[in-house]
Design a protein around this nucleic acid. Structure first.
Length: 287
DNA sequence: AACGCCGCCTGATCGC
DNA sequence: TGCGATCAGGCGGCGT
């Protein structure tokens, strides 16, 4: 599932491809992904509009555009959910089964596809208000992190998934950060000691930074699944799943149940917290 | 207001 | 082999 690093890599690759391109047509195939924005509204806003900037915020993609009619700025908010992908496809290429939104950019189509339709491409900004600090920016301080953790009785793993605590950490990197910090995923957030909070703060940044660095080395046409299916894609955020060799060596606990801990060889355990899998080393991450 | 729970979705996997 | 049941999970909304 795409978390902060995957979205960051996508944004870096996608930004130069869409910059200054003009939208010549808008096709909404799944209105659901628009959230509260009516299809007619987004179609009218985007038609003829031109991309100016693309940045990441948490797991969100923020597309800035300038409208054709009044040249007013437009903010298009994207989220990949669990299975979303965004890429350019040659205009002549066949669209994927689950294409949710297609933007005609001339030679290429900008495609947002999402088999589960959990993601969004919308003009609605309300989700952004709920986001906490960017973990890789100076605004993410140990002091504020500690203050927020003190307010919560939730298990720290569950709390890390709260996007208002820190933006962009998902199920994979929550487990990875806790392993790196040597902290049990089950301990209540408010029970963390200052030195643990400090280590976790550092671990979050390290885990995310390492993943971005690893992703940056991928070729532009990298694809996590079969090459043939993706050969037409100008860029593709590869589903670098746990099966891909690239990904595997980066993840020390996630999806490694029963495999030996990289540090102490104790079998990694899987547990369910808030209906989500958590992976941890019972030896290195004791309460 | 923190927190638990449900619904949204489809593809992959499981069990018979 | 085939097919229905189960699982996976980010996030918003709702109730407590």
């Amino acid at each position: 599932m795409p978390e902060l690093p995957e979205v960051e890599i996508l944004v870096r690759h996608l930004a130069p491809l869409v910059k200054s391109r003009t939208i010549q047509g808008v096709e909404i195939r799944r209105p659901r992904v628009l959230g509260p924005t009516p299809a007619t509204e987004i179609t009218q806003a985007l038609n003829g509009a031109r991309f100016t900037h693309l940045i990441r915020r948490g797991k969100f993609l923020l597309f800035s555009l300038r409208s054709a009619a009044d040249r007013e700025p437009i903010l298009l908010v994207g989220h990949l959910g669990m299975t979303g992908r965004m890429y350019l496809l040659p205009h002549s290429a066949e669209l994927p089964k689950h294409a949710a939104v297609v933007l005609d950019l001339g030679r290429h189509n900008f495609v947002y596809e999402d088999p589960r339709y959990f993601g969004r491409l919308t003009l609605d900004r309300s989700s952004l208000n709920r986001l906490g600090p960017e973990p890789l920016d100076p605004e993410f301080t140990v002091a504020n992190f500690a203050a927020d953790l003190r307010k919560s009785a939730q298990a720290i793993k569950i709390k890390l998934l709260d996007q208002s605590l820190v933006a962009g950490v998902g199920n994979i990197y929550a487990s990875e950060a806790l392993f790196r910090a040597g902290i049990s995923p089950r301990i209540a957030a408010r029970r963390l000691k200052p030195d643990q909070i400090e280590r976790l703060h550092t671990a979050i940044r390290e885990v995310l930074t390492a993943a971005i660095d690893a992703g940056s080395t991928l070729p532009l046409d990298f694809a996590g699944d079969t090459p043939n299916r993706n050969r037409n894609r100008l860029f593709y955020y590869g589903a670098a799943g746990p099966d891909s060799g690239f990904y595997q060596e980066r993840l020390q606990v996630y999806d490694r149940a029963d495999a030996p801990c990289v540090r102490c060889a104790t079998p990694i355990r899987r547990l369910i917290q808030a209906a989500r899998s958590t992976f941890f080393c019972p030896q290195c991450q004791r309460k």
